[in-house]
Design a protein around this nucleic acid. Structure first.
Lengths: 153, 153
DNA sequence: TATTGTTATACTCTATAACTATA
DNA sequence: TATAGTTATAGAGTATAACAATA
């Protein structure tokens, strides 16, 4: 049975590079924390994506739909449905931009601001996987992740 | 306008704890890398979840459907449809377990093994955000993430 | 003509509940 | 009765393409 691998089928994989291993670990950690994040959002009767959308909005400088799409990393047609859900529940309002009437500015209602305040408060407690690390590790993690995110800018 | 936040509406948030900040950064990094992961999986005509499922299988000890569900962190009914897609394309086969005929053992076909070999090879290159870090940072990241994952066990 | 946002459509991932075939 | 997996159904997120309003 010919198999195009670099090693016998079923054998443990070749030791990965530190970069590949770090990425795999981050993927595992993210997946391990998914139920936690869903329960946090669920406690506010939000999905994770809705919670994240709420966190991006800023009434000082209202977001356009297209800007929110960029921040959430998804298509504009998606944002329509995410914002629909938040608007139906009275947390967000669409306001036409005076200078360019094609653009919809997203502003939060008082209820939306109140909800976001509670979400922000709750999210000051990280998932246990991160929270259980000692502060030195948490700070080192911040520094490294900041460098990683900076490298794409 | 009364707003239940701990600070004026629209103001920059209270300095987060290192743990909360680390988690936020990890979330941002993960989202930034999503298009990369989709393009890697897409190059093999797989979704990210299908690619991940493939990586979990081991013909030395065939997985049960329920075991794959645990590894993927999702419901068993999901795994049925993920495996259906892989089986339709000839990468995986369901084999009845002799000792307990309710259980389906998942084995990879030669085509599945070949594909997984190519996927493993490709995944030895991490996303640029991680790959551009110096090796010291990558190694530190591995150590910290291992500790984080260990803390839930 | 080009752009912003919406609508229509479709696919993946997800879960719950009811079902089957075994145990 | 209980368990492994499937099927039916439904909802959220995702994208593409066609569309309306505006620039």
């Amino acid at each position: 049975m010919f198999v195009e691998t670099t090693q016998p089928a079923g054998a443990p994989s070749v030791p990965a590079s530190p970069g590949a291993r770090a990425w795999q670990l981050m993927y595992d950690l993210f997946k391990a924390n998914k139920p936690y994040m869903e329960s946090v959002a669920g406690a506010f009767d939000l999905t994770v994506q809705q919670m994240y959308a709420l966190k991006q909005m800023d009434n000082e400088r209202p977001l356009a739909m297209s800007e929110l799409a960029t921040l959430l990393g998804c298509d504009a047609s998606n944002v329509t449905s995410i914002v629909d859900k938040l608007e139906t529940r009275g947390f967000v309002a669409r306001r036409s931009d005076d200078r360019d009437r094609r653009v919809k500015a997203l502003v939060m209602t008082p209820e939306g601001l109140a909800l976001r305040g509670r979400v922000d408060e709750r999210m000051r407690t990280p998932p246990p996987t991160i929270g259980n690390l000692d502060v030195g590790d948490q700070q080192a993690l911040c520094r490294i992740l900041e460098r990683a995110l900076g490298s794409t800018e």
